[in-house]
Simulated scan of single mutants.
Amino acid sequence: MKNATLAVCISVPLIALSACQQPSDGDGETQISAAACERCGEIESITPVTVKGEPRAGAALAGAVIGGVVGHQFGSGSGNDAATAAGAVGGAVAGSEIDRRRNAKTHYDVVVRMPSGERVELTRVDIAGLSVGDEVEVQGNRIVPAS
């Protein structure tokens, strides 16, 4: 009687566990259902966006000095003064613009299309390892390759 009870106690949990097994794809690997990853989707687009940086005051000042020196080389008398002033103003503007471009930052707007049709838009500073068509999982504000 003890052996029959022991056999029942062992076989019932084994039968229950075998019913929980996920279907196989034929190669012995387990298929993961789409419901297992509710926030998975495919990268639809990656758009780089460049934002100019803020210029430093030193850049405008350096540009003004250089522009003034170059402008001073032209004209004579009051024409020389006007050329110097124009060179200084032009140099300040050019110095600021050069510094803005040098301090520019690029980020990427990434759109992930979910199986439901929902589009999730995220901004990333780095897209290393990601490209359009990749299967990914959206975890809050992060995108990670789907496993």
Rank of each mutant, 00 (worst) to 15 (best):
S24D: 11
S24C: 04
D25F: 08
D27N: 12
D27C: 10
G28M: 09
E29H: 12
E29V: 15
T30F: 09
T30N: 05
Q31R: 14
I32P: 02
I32H: 14
I32Q: 11
S33G: 12
S33T: 10
S33K: 07
S33Y: 08
S33V: 04
A34H: 04
A35S: 13
A36E: 10
A36L: 13
A36G: 14
A36Q: 08
C37L: 15
C37A: 12
E38H: 05
E38R: 13
R39T: 15
R39A: 09
R39C: 01
C40F: 08
C40A: 12
G41Y: 01
G41N: 07
G41A: 11
G41C: 04
E42S: 15
E42D: 07
I43W: 13
I43E: 07
I43H: 06
I43K: 02
E44D: 15
S45H: 03
S45P: 09
S45A: 15
S45G: 11
I46M: 09
I46E: 01
I46G: 01
I46A: 06
I46F: 04
I46H: 06
T47C: 00
T47L: 00
T47D: 01
T47V: 11
P48W: 01
P48S: 12
P48R: 06
P48K: 04
P48L: 03
V49I: 14
V49Q: 03
V51H: 02
V51P: 00
V51A: 07
V51L: 09
G53D: 09
G53I: 09
G53S: 09
G53C: 07
G53M: 08
E54I: 13
E54D: 08
P55A: 14
P55R: 12
P55D: 04
R56V: 14
R56W: 06
A57H: 03
A57D: 08
G58P: 01
G58E: 08
G58F: 01
G58D: 10
G58Y: 02
A60E: 08
A60C: 15
A60G: 15
L61M: 15
L61W: 08
A62F: 07
A62P: 04
A62Q: 02
A62R: 03
G63L: 12
G63H: 01
G63Y: 03
V65Y: 01
G67H: 03
G67K: 01
G68N: 01
G68R: 07
V69Q: 14
G71I: 02
G71T: 05
H72C: 11
H72N: 15
H72T: 03
H72K: 02
H72P: 02
Q73Y: 10
Q73N: 11
F74C: 13
F74L: 12
F74I: 14
G75M: 12
S76L: 03
G77D: 10
G77P: 05
G77L: 06
G77Y: 05
G77W: 12
S78N: 14
S78C: 07
S78K: 13
S78Y: 14
G79Q: 11
G79F: 15
G79E: 11
